[in-house]
Nucleic acid binder design. Structure first.
Lengths: 231, 231, 231, 231
DNA sequence: GATGAATGAGAGTTCATTCAT
DNA sequence: GATGAATGAACTCTCATTCAT
């Protein structure tokens, strides 16, 4: 497992921290605020995962976070944005991980694709529920009822994530490894396959009390895709 | 487009219909009842597609169907089952189409896969919204709140659909065309890719007011998959 | 058991029946109509007893009577009056029985009180549920929402029943057997005790899955009352 | 009248209330909460009495209590439990009063029976409507639809009340004042007569716009019963 | 007279959100 | 900043009653 909690506070703070008293207090406050946010998101994750968006109540999330319902609204405009924040968070993290892969020197596109698959599996295994919520978010109902700002943020993060995949694919084409196809379409297919497998195998598991074959199915899916990409 | 409306009444009625008075009346009533059901489902499809499950109200669906709210409950036990009925309907229809492909003589698995892709595209083009609702259904939240009977029906229809794909894949393996892999896993991947592409491209469209590239992306995805399946 | 079904048709019809064709038809129609009424009341009795007034539905009563809901409204103005009709019916019958006791020659008031008790027990044993519904009717909620005509009818039947008891009590006072007290008050107490015991012991049975001690308790209650009545 | 409001807050609070700030706040909140509860019950009593259980609406009760409908559900799980709470409350209070009578020194069972009658009359006069609701509760319809916990509570309170009466009767038998009979049966009869009289005379009043003879009738009923109890 | 599909008003209940403390 | 009691709009669903057939 080469990545840490997405939802635990891992934002880099200014390294230097104490030359100014007010600055310190302000910063501490800032940090506390950030921690509360994470605390709420952590609780929301649990409840949304267990109940789904509609059946989850703000009161239960507040209880889980050991805060009062009112407090939630100091940190998130409403229920929908709290939910979306979870999704954006994981999307951002996936993007960070993918950008690391892109930056890797001395490995070709095939190997990068391998690493991409590993990343996907890791993300899934670390936090399948938030991931599934992310895909749920994609599916219309939520998308239509989002505030413009959050929609914009989601759009950007989303484009960013797709851009990262695209650039790996482009590399493969440039290196003469992959057959020449529209790289964005390929990136779409990669992301769609990932989403699809996670969603589908998960729903099969729910329907039939089946085992969790996501990892295995993702491995096969990528193997097939990679072979299909070849020139 | 080689299939007709899933939701419009296409049940075959006896051609001759007048030898018996009572029979005629009963039959007409049956037909009327079936029509009301379709009428409601048609309205529900519109409203669910426009608003998503939660934001859609029974009153609005009733209005759209030009019926009173109470009438909806004569045909569907509750909101959830009305929604699920839409999904099961299309799933059943897809299965019928796929079974026709399976039964086709004189074409190999590769060609059947081509036809499968065409079917998927046709279904999508005929009724993308119901399809997207189907995937929404798969995603946990709804699944957890379904009545046992409907869950069972969904399970069976779902297994049936997957079974059909599996048998095509098995044929490909038996004919020495596809590399030997677990056929159910392959069927999962085909279905997951289909679901994923429809969902993902659609959400991209919603996010960016983008064009509808589903057909194109599905074409490419299948091309890649087929190449990946080869021995 | 010296009385027959209250709810089965036992109204006396004209002894002579056939001198006129139209009369015959009309009469047959009348009889059929009366039978339908009883059929509905019989069904209503079952359903009201099993579910109570509020939870009983007209549709279920119709089903039980093997008729359609609409038909019920040809015989009863509404649900409330159907329910009240059951109560009035039994009240009328009780009155008939009590009047027979009053008319009995050669027995004193004490013996008549004994017979009164037996009648009460018989009525209870024959049809405890309708009886309990009758007491339920007395209890405000229903009483307040009755149509004037039915209220009037109930008032009369009720007064009639109480009058019968009163006259027995009066007899006892006149014969010097009972202490002189307001005879209507005594009649009230007799009726109230009867109602109370049936209601109370029944509710105890429901609460504790207890045995049905109504008969036994009524026996004791009357014994005590009679002793209390003595001069 | 020797008892105070059942429904008005009469719980003893610590007389001294200022040594601890937090204690004070917590206590005040507790008291406020208790007051809201009473406020709602008071309003519910009015509305249930005027309309009966079924025709009373939560909205009207809320209006009467000058609260919003939602608030009612912060204090009572649902309509049924709000209604039952009223009944249990008065039942509990009656029991308390009866236990005081039991504890009285220097008076025999006859005198205790007299006091019992007075208590019954006082309770009736203080709050006849809740009392009638209590009897209504006993009558099947409601009883069948109660939550297990509340049913249990009712059962216990009910048994408690009956037990109190039983012990007075037992005393009478032990003192050689009352004829030897099953004391529980006697208690049943006392309670049943009380219920019956209240219900019956009240319904007569409703039917005939008659005067309220409950007190008078109860007096006579007890006089008769006591005489009937004698050895 | 009988039907039973359709009605639609109205109920109980939930819960995201607010705001006085 | 935090609270959490109160809000009240909005929802799903029921069912007595009607009326065209």
């Amino acid at each position: 497992m080469y990545f840490m909690s997405v939802l635990t506070d891992n934002k880099p703070y200014s390294k230097y921290n104490g030359d100014n008293y007010n600055m310190g207090i302000q910063e501490r406050k800032q940090r506390e605020k950030e921690m509360r946010r994470k605390q709420i998101m952590e609780a929301a994750k649990k409840v949304f995962s267990a109940k789904g968006f509609s059946r989850a109540t703000m009161e239960e999330i507040a209880g889980e976070a050991e805060l009062s319902p009112g407090t939630l609204y100091l940190y998130f405009k409403n229920k929908e944005e709290l939910h979306t924040s979870l999704s954006i968070d994981i999307l951002e993290y996936i993007t960070i991980l993918m950008k690391k892969i892109i930056g890797k020197k001395g490995i070709d596109a095939n190997e990068k694709m391998e690493k991409l698959k590993d990343t996907f599996i890791d993300v899934y295994e670390y936090d399948s529920m938030v991931l599934i919520n992310l895909f749920h978010l994609q599916s219309g109902e939520t998308l239509k009822n989002l505030s413009p700002e959050v929609l914009e943020q989601l759009k950007e993060t989303s484009a960013d994530a797709l851009g990262a995949i695209t650039s790996i694919v482009q590399e493969g084409i440039d290196q003469g490894l992959f057959k020449e196809r529209h790289p964005v379409a390929l990136a779409d297919i990669i992301w769609a396959t990932y989403s699809g497998v996670v969603l589908w195998v998960d729903s099969k598991r729910l329907l039939n009390n089946d085992k969790d074959f996501v990892r295995q199915t993702l491995e096969t899916a990528f193997e097939i895709m990679l072979k299909g990409f070849e020139k």
